[in-house]
């Protein structure tokens, strides 16, 4: 599904990513963690073909993420950590717009079911939504799609605990259906619960962690702390 090899990204003189490697196979749910400013979002933007890699390769479905972005995007769904919407449109309008651009038609049943599960009112204008409700717009639009890969960048920021539970259920359903998920998050318990494997990123460099490593360190949080203590 995803394959990143020796990825580097510079912004002018600043080196944002120095050496990122990642591989996600079909049906895997993979976590992506690291401190603020380590390069998580930059990596994801390279995967989305929004940023061009300085060196190295990144591919999704075996296609180059920069050159074949349009093709790739037809089969992926993305949820950013901070969703910016258009103040004069309603939540429902934006959800349908996002789904329509994928050109696969709207599965109204699935969409309405998600709206109900997330307890969301799609008839209000976007400027009246709170952070959590804006997040729901992106989540509902993403989960309504029949995508092969879901890229989620801190998708639960601003959600209340009940809604976070709904989110976890949704991801588990995706997993059952054999879809792949890349989940970037600071909520380590969420990552630990959902993910088969985890990538940790520090100063633009990734390291892979297996479930076994987590068990050895007793919890992901302990491992995270250890990793960055050692780094200092």
């Amino acid at each position: 599904m995803i394959e990143i090899k020796n990825l580097k990204k510079n912004f002018g003189k600043m080196e944002a990513l120095t050496n990122v490697n990642m591989e996600i196979k079909k049906g895997e749910v993979v976590g992506f963690i690291g401190p603020n400013g380590a390069g998580k979002t930059t990596t994801i933007r390279v995967l989305l073909g929004i940023l061009k890699a300085t060196e190295g390769t990144a591919s999704i479905f075996g296609k180059d993420t920069w050159k074949d972005a349009v093709e790739i995007h037809k089969d992926i769904a993305y949820v950013p950590g901070d969703v910016a919407l258009w103040p004069n449109l309603t939540g429902g309008e934006v959800i349908d717009f996002f789904i329509n651009l994928r050109k696969k038609g709207i599965n109204k049943e699935r969409r309405d079911e998600l709206i109900k599960r997330f307890d969301f009112d799609p008839s209000k204008k976007c400027n009246t939504y709170s952070k959590g409700n804006r997040q729901k717009v992106a989540l509902i639009a993403a989960f309504s799609c029949d995508a092969d890969l879901y890229i989620l960048d801190e998708p639960t920021s601003g959600l209340d605990p009940l809604m976070e539970k709904v989110f976890v259920e949704c991801v588990q359903e995706l997993k059952k259906q054999g879809r792949s998920v890349l989940l970037s998050s600071h909520i380590l318990s969420e990552v630990e619960k959902l993910c088969d494997r985890v990538y940790i990123i520090r100063k633009g460099e990734t390291k892979e962690i297996s479930q076994k490593d987590i068990k050895c360190a007793s919890s992901l949080e302990a491992l995270f702390g250890e990793h960055f203590k050692e780094a200092k």
């Binding site: 929004i50 972005a69 349009v70 995007h73 037809k74 950013p80 910016a84 919407l85 651009l101 050109k103």
Partner: peptide
């Protein structure tokens, strides 16, 4: 940040 969501969709 509105542009980012658009760019994640299948648009050139």
């Amino acid at each position: 940040g509105q542009g980012e969501v658009i760019r994640s969709l299948p648009v050139g």
